[in-house]
Design a binder for these strands. Structure first.
Lengths: 206, 206, 206, 206
DNA sequence: CATGAATGAGGGTTCATTCAT
DNA sequence: AATGAATGAACCCTCATTCAT
């Protein structure tokens, strides 16, 4: 075996792949799909153009892959925060807390997901799916609370959509601050209050 | 429509300019800033490429100009709806009603404004300014109601931001429906309820 | 009408188009489809890259178009030479004469058609069609002579194919000479003799 | 097959080299010089890219080497068929028979040699040399027969060239058939007749 | 010997922009 | 004013070639 691939090589390979993906997230988040060039990405990752195409089939595939992966990760993370609580107020607080944490910790992720507009037809579908998942993330516990008559009657889908929009907007504004960490706790608190008001008074059942 | 020359006397003179702007709104809204080409625009407007550069210095300037104009128009329209009422609940309902009307009547306007943070650096600033204006649109009457102690104490800025996000998200979803008009009234009603719940019980003062 | 397009403009436009096509024939003939670059072509034609794409949709389309056009032209020319005579020996002589004339006058045309190999799947089909047309060009008068029993019995298709190959080979060799014109007449004479021998003794009928 | 190492002792050692050469012939014949990629070759040969450059200096060298080797092999084979007979008609039949056999048995060889004048400057020379050898292959016995006055007076070089072209064309057509073997015998027969007619009536001398 | 990750020049194509008419 | 032919920088991607392992 004149060429061992499971040693350092493997690590370097993965590191290169990873650094390109990170660079890609950064550039895509910053400039959007069209304005981001492959050259931008490889320059940041400090590799040659050809290397990009050694690891990824093309720009669009990488982008959609990145989008999907990131979206799934975000949804999973929030989902876990949600199911770890049983009462609506605690669920709201947990989801928002998780979301804000993520935004502070990995702002590029959030920016990537909110690029919107229209990079490519393929993205439009992806984006819709993502928004839908986010909506369902809120709608599920909301519907349960409604079923238990713990919340006043309302259109759960519209409420969920509105919450998704509200949370995104507030978090984006938060990220635009010079030092988002400082305002994070306050934002979580007030945003939670907003959502709880918006879904009406919660009455605990026995 | 903000991009229509309001001076009837030069209607003929500016007809090309106008048709190009209308075409531009349409194309930008549909494909985003980068994917939209000058050729797309002039083809729809049925003029030559050179004509574009007679009326506008370049693509980006037109875009930012269009964005500003459209944003101002939207804000003005909602502003008027807002000031025509004196009580918070009526104001909420009026703004949302006006917003939905506009979205149904001229969806391209809304889509143009929500294209997102990509595009160009110049747009980022513009977008922030627009979001800020929208926020203030809500924050002003909200603050007044708070001052009059008609609403429970809350962070008026965060509430306003959240409302902006909520309304946008719901209206975008509405526009994605095959026949938005049919759902318009219901959306106005439920969205208004959402916002009113989110700002807490309103107590009318004498 | 501020822009008249049927005047000098038209001429210049056509001249540019023409010069690019000539350059393309030259480059394609010289290097073959793949080795020929769009940049090669525009440099010879002394225009910018963009100009190429203003006149032609893409490299492949231009190539196939050029090939078709050239092939048709060649076949037409030879066809006319053929039908202008009624007797087989005169037909043979006329076709060969016309072919050699063309080769001397416009050598790039012949080279373009014989590029062969495989530029692109699309070309393979084209090339076959062209060879088929050439074959039929010979087979038609040959069959007629056979029907009139002016030539000895033979497989007219194979004979025609063989003649096509023979003529091409000899003419290509001729073109490789430093001064093809000098050898042209002799080649026509001897090639005609070859073909006449190859189809057997001709017996004129009354 | 010319590209097969004839030394059994180093069969193992050169197995990669051999399989790459076989793969190369196949790929070059199929796609032509430029469209064939080194990757295509090594994938078929099931070795790594680097291995290619251990055995061959570069793509072009391999190609020209392959071309030369193949051309020599073909010429040798036909030569042997030619010298094994003493009379012109038998020589013609033997050469054509050998050519057709080879074409049926190893079509890639023939296709490789007929790829054409594109490729690379270096190939042009090679190709000319090969055509020249083929021409001489026919011209030698032809001249001899002429010297013996067994054939009518003619330009032996032109006749030889024409025969070369004729034979190639017919054999290429044969290879394009779905099942070339079925038509092989008939083609040999008729092609032989064609050539014999084309060189004029053969008179056996004592 | 053999590997395959890495390179970067170069190819086809697009598109914002200019300018002679 | 208006036109559209012309430009060329820049984009995405391919592929021959190298070299550390």
């Amino acid at each position: 075996m004149p060429y061992r691939s499971s040693d350092k090589t493997r690590q370097k390979k993965d590191s290169k792949r990873t650094s390109m993906m990170q660079a890609a997230v950064q550039v895509f988040a910053e400039k959007g799909y069209h304005a981001a060039t492959v050259r931008d990405i490889v320059e940041i990752a400090d590799v040659a153009v050809g290397t990009f195409y050694f690891y990824f089939p093309d720009k669009e595939t990488l982008f959609t892959h990145l989008y999907d992966e990131t979206a799934d990760f975000l949804v999973q993370t929030l989902q876990q925060a949600s199911v770890s609580r049983s009462l609506w107020p605690q669920q709201v607080q947990a989801i928002i807390q998780a979301y804000v944490n993520l935004a502070i910790f990995e702002p590029a992720i959030i920016q990537l997901l909110l690029i919107g507009g229209s990079g490519t037809p393929a993205l439009a579908t992806r984006r819709q799916r993502f928004r839908h998942q986010l909506t369902q993330l809120w709608q599920r516990p909301l519907t349960e609370a409604l079923t238990n008559e713990q919340l006043p009657d309302q259109d759960s889908r519209l409420t969920a959509e509105a919450i998704v929009g509200a949370v995104d907007e507030v978090i984006l504004k938060l990220l635009n601050l010079p030092e988002p960490e400082l305002a994070a706790d306050g934002t979580v608190l007030n945003l939670t209050r907003f959502v709880l008001r918006a879904t009406g008074p919660f009455r605990e059942k026995t």
